[in-house]
């Protein structure tokens, strides 16, 4: 297999992983209206937890060690890490949503992510500080006796199956009455409370689901790299995911795939490959990163609905499966009132 094919599959892997990540942020931000600038924190927490759950316990020695390790199979460590991250996200949400206006919330969320990032750099007792977690096992590799390249192809498939399941779940949630309550909160949280919805509870639920999705993405990133440390992520990388959401189309599950693919192929993985294989200089890569900002501005200005706009649910959509009900509405009664 050629090096290009390995690169290509790795890029596909990133597209899938960031599709998952942007689905989660889209729920919290575009569908519930919470500017969750700490989203990438949950990606990182998911990555660390996936590592910790699948690694054995290493007692602290020479500044390297992890507080605990469960030595679980990687396939199990990932969802377990995501559940714990989801609970953590709900806890953070419960603390901060209680009191804060949303514009302050945005700042506080970034500050929280920065504090925890600094903590991960300085604290060596939990996850080895800047060394971070290494040798995170490749799920299935040992069982199937395959090399790392073969594993990458296999695991891209595993990620794709996960993504399809998470896409279906997100679709089901957003089409449900629960998803409708989320959108009501996004449009006007005061009205949502007025019509009897417990806004606080739904916001926390939304953040929990978002945290779960972020953590799945983070867990996959850690498993692909077999390591995770403070230089694997930065709180401000959340901007890339926001851009994927905006470019793809806020509130659109398939749009998230488009946004993730566009950014990963043209602005992140693609330029990295070109820069390291042909240009032998990181400048091109850096310029591509700068261009993400420009892409976001242009997209938001000229096409705020994104590449795949959110689809409104029509009356036919709601009644479609029950044609008998359609007849109960007698169109003759309709008063065409131009108020």
């Amino acid at each position: 297999m050629s090096a290009f094919f390995l690169f290509f599959m790795t890029m596909v892997f990133y597209v899938i992983v960031f599709w998952i990540a942007s689905l989660g942020l889209d729920l919290v931000w575009s569908r519930t209206g919470i500017p969750l600038f700490a989203y990438y924190l949950y990606v990182a927490v998911g990555a660390y937890l996936t590592g910790l759950f699948s690694l054995p316990h290493v007692p602290l020695q020479n500044g390297v060690g992890n507080l605990f390790g469960f030595n679980l199979p990687g396939l199990l460590a990932l969802p377990l890490a995501a559940v714990v991250t989801g609970l953590f996200a709900m806890f953070v949400g419960a603390v901060f949503m209680r009191r804060l206006r949303t514009d302050y919330l945005a700042v506080v969320m970034v500050a929280v992510a920065l504090v925890i990032w600094d903590f991960s750099q300085n604290d060596i007792t939990l996850v080895s500080g800047n060394t971070g977690l290494t040798n995170i096992p490749l799920p299935l590799a040992g069982v199937l006796h395959i090399n790392i390249n073969q594993w990458t192809y296999l695991y891209t498939g595993v990620a794709f199956v996960w993504a399809l399941a998470l896409w279906w779940i997100m679709k089901t949630v957003s089409n449900s009455p629960t998803g409708r309550v989320f959108r009501a909160i996004r449009d006007d949280s005061v009205v949502a409370a007025t019509i009897g919805k417990n806004v606080y509870r739904y916001q926390i639920l939304s953040m929990g689901i978002g945290g779960f999705y972020a953590a799945i993405a983070g867990g996959f990133l850690a498993q692909l790299a077999t390591s995770w440390n403070p230089s694997s992520w930065a709180p401000f990388e959340v901007f890339n995911v926001f851009t994927m959401v905006i470019v793809g189309g806020v509130g659109s599950n398939l749009g998230m795939l488009v946004g993730a693919a566009l950014l990963q192929v043209l602005f992140i993985q693609g330029p990295t490959y070109v820069a390291s294989n042909y240009l032998h200089s990181p400048t091109f890569e850096t310029l591509a990163a700068a261009a993400i900002g420009v892409l976001m501005w242009l997209s938001l200005w000229f096409r705020p609905q994104g590449a795949v706009p959110e689809r409104l649910k029509s009356t036919a959509w709601y009644l479609g499966r029950e044609p008998a009900l359609q007849e109960t509405i007698n169109p003759d009664l309709t008063v065409e009132e131009r108020a």
Binding site: W29, F239, A290
Partner: peptide, 22 residues
């Protein structure tokens, strides 16, 4: 929505930092 403008400033930050690095 001020959150959108904040994301725009985020983008400005990313843009400036990367161009400065170049």
């Amino acid at each position: 929505n001020p959150a959108l403008t904040m994301i725009v400033t985020f983008g400005l930050s990313l843009f400036m930092a990367n161009v400065a690095t170049v």
